[in-house]
Write a protein that binds this DNA or RNA. Structure first.
Lengths: 156, 156
DNA sequence: AGGTGAGGGTTTGATTTTCCAACTCACCGG
DNA sequence: CCGGTGAGTTGGAAAATCAAACCCTCACCT
């Protein structure tokens, strides 16, 4: 995700610069599931080996994954999520939720996630302050840096 | 995001096939903010015009955006989010939240979002059933379709 | 000692995408 | 008639992706 003169300083863009390249989030999905070995990642993500290699390097250097030796002689490695990597799981969950609902009508899901409370997880984004589920109409963008001249009714 | 033989049927991958290409989510960000005109999108996302054109076509065809005529003579268009598009905002919020925390230490944020409850929005993903914030340790993946052979301790 | 196979990659060359600048077309304002 | 705006399209160079082949280190079998 190299050159891009995004005139907008933006954490969304910055995060995508780390995990927005093709396969990166699928790699993270697998690593969070515990499938952190190279050949598993090739099989489960469908990424070409050279691309996977590049993505892993990038994610390790960005502090999202770590490379761990799980066997000397023969040397074998495994990738695991860092704390920062685990904190990207909300992104995976919201992506999954949208796909489950809009691309599969909520039926025939290939995988579900069970929450410790007992049921299938339905991730809901709430406001940390009041605890209410967040709806578009309740949001107002507050530009803080130059480059953020809003024109429209504004909400993100 | 053409050819990819992802051996895993997965809603995350499917969603990324819709909005995972470079610039797509930045376009959605702008459209959700109300900045839905072509030249605004060029300026605010930094996307080359031809790429932007392709992304807009794709997002409209996928039902994430609609193209609206806001002036005949001269013909001028504007892109707006559909309901499905608005429902992708949780993805944007979780991406923003991660970037704010991990890429900027939570300081000097270029933009904040205010929630109707009064404070700056801190998006938290919770379990729809019990309402608790979701933590990695509380999750268990439940494969439902073939292709989902888990090996590790498993959680997503 | 030789063959086979797994794991974890790198190399090579063809194919796709992206990038960027220039160009179009339709209209409006002076 | 001239310049400018909005919404794109076009053409060619540069970069990223793809698939397959290759490499290296060991372990195991016989």
């Amino acid at each position: 995700m190299a050159a891009m003169k995004d005139p907008r300083p933006c954490s969304i863009a910055d995060t995508l610069a780390v995990v927005g390249e093709k396969y990166s989030l699928l790699v993270l999905r697998e690593v969070c599931l515990g499938n952190g070995r190279f050949d598993q990642l090739v099989r489960n993500t469908g990424a070409p080996r050279d691309i996977l290699s590049a993505r892993l390097r990038r994610l390790v250097e960005a502090g999202v994954l770590t490379k761990r030796l799980y066997s000397e002689r023969p040397q074998r490695f495994e990738y695991r999520p860092t704390q920062a990597g685990l904190e990207l799981e909300p992104v995976l969950m919201t992506l999954k939720e949208w796909g489950d609902r809009h691309l599969r009508n909520g039926t025939d899901l290939p995988m579900t996630v069970e929450h410790s409370c007992g049921g299938a997880l339905v991730p809901v984004v709430t406001c940390g302050a009041c605890g209410d589920p967040v709806r578009h109409e309740d949001l107002t963008a507050r530009p803080q840096a130059p480059g953020w001249t809003l024109t429209g009714p504004t909400a993100a």
